Simulated scan of single mutants.
Amino acid sequence: MITVQDLRKVYRLGSREIPALRGVSLHIPRGEIHGVVGPSGAGKSTLVRCLTVVERPTSGSVTVDGKELTALGERELRTARRSIGMVFQNVNLLDNRTAAQNVAHPLELARVPRERRKERVAELLELVGLGDRGAAYPSQLSGGQRQRIGIARALAAEPSVLLCDEPTSALDARTTHSILQLIRDVRDRLGVTVILITHEPAVVKEACDSVSRLHDGRIVQQGPVAEALTAPESELAHDLLPLVTAASDAHAEDVVDITFSGDAKGTELLSQLARRFDVDARIVAATVETHRGRQYGRMRLGFGPGAPMPQILEFLAGNGVAAEVVR
């Protein structure tokens, strides 16, 4: 559905070259919600501009639904962009227009007949849960409601792709949850493919099926979110499942981080380790999360003197538990 191949963007400042994207490649199947996460300066904003070819990449290609956008001229590109709906952190609604008129705006630009516009706007307002707020102006709406109108407006032209650039950054936790749930509902009902750009790992964990971690213009990790949650050696796993300290590890001779999922419960493993190897083991830090109805967790375990670590690590691996020796 969406294929990005070796995308590079270099800015020139006088005689200096400043690379912003360094060979980014992505493949996102139809109907998937793919998160791109990374800190400020990682290249996320440049990637958004290059995905829509608002800014031409220095090299590489962007293909959406079989059409290579980077090979199109400006006229063809304007038509092709209609297949991509855009949702931004700053919704930028027109203050002098009602919610319904804001949603209708792209349809007016596309010269959709008035009666069809009216029907489409009513459908979209119902879809985003604001069927009774069409006559309200942006100043009369909450931040979450304005973002819902922004999503409805992005869907007006029936795009196959929804590109969301930091859509929840300005929202509180409760509203963020409702907007992410709406994005998933939109995907499930309309079948759109979603790219969700964010600097918040919690957003990826809650909304996305797969994820790419962008750092210094490069993708340094990529894959299903479920795999990222069980890869203790990766920065993305540490971001998605941050450890909450329970006790000091100062008295432990060996410290190991374990990542478990599903039936491999951490507390059960701890009791099994104690019985099997007659070791003094305790939880130094722990966190447990649920993703798509399945439980995932990380624990930092401290082992007392004399613990047979090679055998313990072999036992953990045999039970499907990823382990990383911290000390």
Score class of each variant (00 low, 15 high):
10 V>E: 03
15 S>G: 12
16 R>Q: 04
17 E>Q: 15
22 R>H: 01
23 G>Q: 04
23 G>S: 06
26 L>E: 08
34 H>M: 06
35 G>V: 00
36 V>I: 13
39 P>S: 09
40 S>G: 02
42 A>Q: 07
46 T>R: 00
47 L>M: 06
56 R>M: 04
66 G>K: 05
68 E>D: 05
83 S>P: 02
92 N>I: 08
98 T>S: 13
105 H>K: 03
107 L>E: 01
108 E>Q: 07
110 A>E: 11
118 K>L: 11
126 E>G: 08
128 V>F: 00
129 G>S: 10
131 G>F: 12
134 G>M: 07
138 P>T: 12
140 Q>F: 10
148 R>N: 14
150 G>E: 14
150 G>H: 08
150 G>N: 03
158 E>N: 11
161 V>T: 10
164 C>S: 06
168 T>K: 09
169 S>M: 06
169 S>I: 05
171 L>Y: 10
174 R>G: 04
174 R>V: 09
175 T>N: 07
176 T>L: 09
177 H>A: 09
185 D>K: 15
190 L>C: 11
196 L>C: 15
197 I>P: 03
198 T>D: 01
208 C>T: 02
209 D>C: 03
212 S>G: 05
216 D>V: 02
221 Q>K: 00
222 Q>C: 03
222 Q>I: 02
231 A>N: 11
231 A>T: 00
233 E>K: 01
236 L>Y: 11
239 D>E: 15
252 A>M: 05
252 A>F: 01
253 E>W: 13
274 A>H: 04
277 F>T: 14
283 I>D: 00
286 A>P: 03
288 V>N: 05
295 Q>H: 09
305 P>M: 10
318 G>Q: 05
325 V>I: 10
325 V>G: 01
